[in-house]
Nucleic acid binder design. Structure first.
Lengths: 223, 223, 223, 223
DNA sequence: AATGAATGAGGCTTCATTCAT
DNA sequence: GATGAATGAAGCCTCATTCAT
């Protein structure tokens, strides 16, 4: 009786919740999970601590939701980008390229997704795992398809996709940590070539430019 | 009889310090830097908190020392293993293989070196970076040599070595997180093939087994 | 009925903060800065340690605030008492008398202001210095005026006012430490005579009783 | 049997004890009782902590002994200096002058005797009291004599001597705390005049120079 | 006599979470 | 829905003291 499930979750309320999420995003990315206090988040969201706890049951829950939605957005973005291609190899390329491009435009997001996760402690390892898994599986899909299409020779796509993701991850991580990071995009050509080669894509194919569809380099941005 | 003035003393002390280090190693690996309390470490070392602080000035210093020495040991091990080979490609293979083999025998070490590091918070990012850098450079050396020797075509070895390390790291990380981890060694062949291919090693060379000395086996262990 | 939204809230809060301050006052005065733990203060204030830290950022800050406000009150009181007099010598007398009278009624305050200060450690020396300075300058003002008025011969009022303060301070300190302290007021006549003489006030003037309003009595009290 | 009371308390041993005392003196004076750790003292004495505890049962005992002996030395010095005079007023003058002169040459000693005491906490208040008492009584003796000799009119010498000591104390304390302390000796003339006046010494007598016996000003030094 | 390792109580501070208003 | 005061469990570190050698 006292609990109308959602009726007046007005725009105002929704925006408040969103604001907290945004604040948490920035705060976690900036300080790491442990070093970001709920007070910090509340302050960044221009609310009170109590306000935060009205919308989320625990600090952990905020983090979890953030992880999930951020990953969702990125995956969605990748899939959207990939949809324009037919060739599975091109799709894999585009996937890598999209991730790189997105992070290039959003260090914050990169930080949250790839670094902070682990710092969050034991509790989040599973969550982090899932995240990594998700991307690996995404990649694996393309590779499997490429093999099915006979574009590349058969391999252990499980291991390979994990390795691909790891390679990508490390490049991004290194870029995040660098004092004076070069442009992340600069690493793309070498990384691309290396990854494609690793699955036996013909050298000649590698030489061809990646995505003629998306003219210019790395115009992406967003969130 | 009761009074060997020094040797015993020293040994006693060394062993206590060592015991603390061991305890910290396990504790950090098990709980992560932040979640491992000095009390936990003391308890694991069967000492008092004060005892710990007699040997180390801060919690951080314990972690740092642990990181450094652990990395040292691993690097030393790799270099020892590599010394037996002439061919830079073989050396790279052996390096990868040694790391994998060592971790296969020491999940704890893997956890400490490759996962926890980042979670330790801002302070440690630099240290962690250095660690990753160290391994990347190790790899880069082999690749550069291979190029110089004309064994593989020129590439951006900087990016490539980072990617290699990332791939390796991710494989290990995944293994660490898995509920029922398969044997880490099982991933070796596929990873090896993928990495070698990625730098343009001839398919024929890849087919050849890596270490004729210990074919296919992972007899390593240690600390 | 249950919901006077604010007034109560504020008062509640103010009173809590005040309660902590009071508790700290007593605790510091009783045990000294170093020996008084935040736990003690919290207990005395019937709050939790966290409660204390909600209102004050550090233990030091509590002490500082206490010092400052206590000194403020005393100085204000002295100035109020002095305002009734025209003659600078009478003013000086009244100042001394007021301090003595106030302390006579509040051993605790005396302890906090004149003794503990120094023990608080290096950090507080400056603060303590300032406090002593404040009183010395107060006194110096009266003496300078007396000289300007030709009531007493010129002297080094800087040194003299410091000495006056020191004399007063020691009398109070001794009283604080005594096992069976006589009434602090009993020391007043001798102290007064001695101080007035020290600046060359005529013996005849000294013989006259100080405060015609409240002859010989110490009715003051307060906080 | 095992405990020959003092036989081989050799020169070496004595010097060790002394060295600890010296180290403690400096350390306490420099950091205050609470902030000076036994480790600090041991280090300053170039011994081990155990060594310190061999010679003294507790940290407190070191402090106590230090206080006592330091005060002894100072009192002895004063009495030696005073012995040369017959006139009790001159004696009082000399006493004040000697204390000031000694401190002028030994800020450290001043710090230990007059400031640190209180910081030491509750336990030492009694000891500090005794110290102050001692000096007050010393002064009181001269004043009583002066009255008996009819040199000055009768007064409450108890209160007066306390006030004298307080005045002296505050002058020294202020000097200790000053950023750029003037020469402590510079305060002597004004302080002297003020104190003598305070007990009714004739103005003419005050005008006479203090100690023609000790030529030059403040040549003292020592420990 | 001396050393230095070990102990353990205690201190200050932080912070996720709860709750009355 | 929101606020902000309050709680209490940890956490890191210090240090006087003890003790085996």
């Amino acid at each position: 009786m006292t609990k109308r499930t959602r009726p007046d979750q007005t725009e105002q309320s929704r925006s408040r919740r969103e604001r907290i999420l945004d604040a948490a995003f920035t705060t976690f990315a900036g300080r790491g999970y442990r070093d970001a206090s709920v007070d910090d988040i509340a302050a960044a969201a221009e609310t009170s601590k109590g306000g935060v706890y009205f919308h989320f049951p625990t600090k952990e829950s905020i983090f979890r939701e953030l992880m999930r939605t951020t990953a969702d957005k990125l995956v969605a973005k990748v899939e959207r980008a990939v949809a324009a291609e037919d060739d599975p190899i091109a799709q894999a390329e585009i996937a890598i390229r999209t991730v790189l491009a997105t992070f290039a435009g959003h260090r914050t997001m990169a930080r949250l997704l790839f670094l902070d996760v682990i710092g969050a402690g034991r509790v989040f390892q599973a969550e982090a795992n899932e995240l990594h898994e998700r991307f690996a599986i995404l990649i694996q899909g393309y590779l499997d398809q490429a093999i099915a299409d006979g574009v590349i020779p058969p391999t252990d796509t499980r291991v390979t996709s994990i390795a691909w993701f790891g390679a990508l991850n490390e490049i991004v991580g290194r870029w995040l940590q660098a004092d004076q990071p070069e442009r992340l995009e600069d690493a793309y050509p070498a990384l691309r070539a290396m990854l494609l080669r690793s699955v036996g894509v013909a050298e000649e194919r590698i030489a061809r430019l990646p995505s003629p569809t998306a003219p210019g380099a790395f115009p992406e941005a967003a969130r």
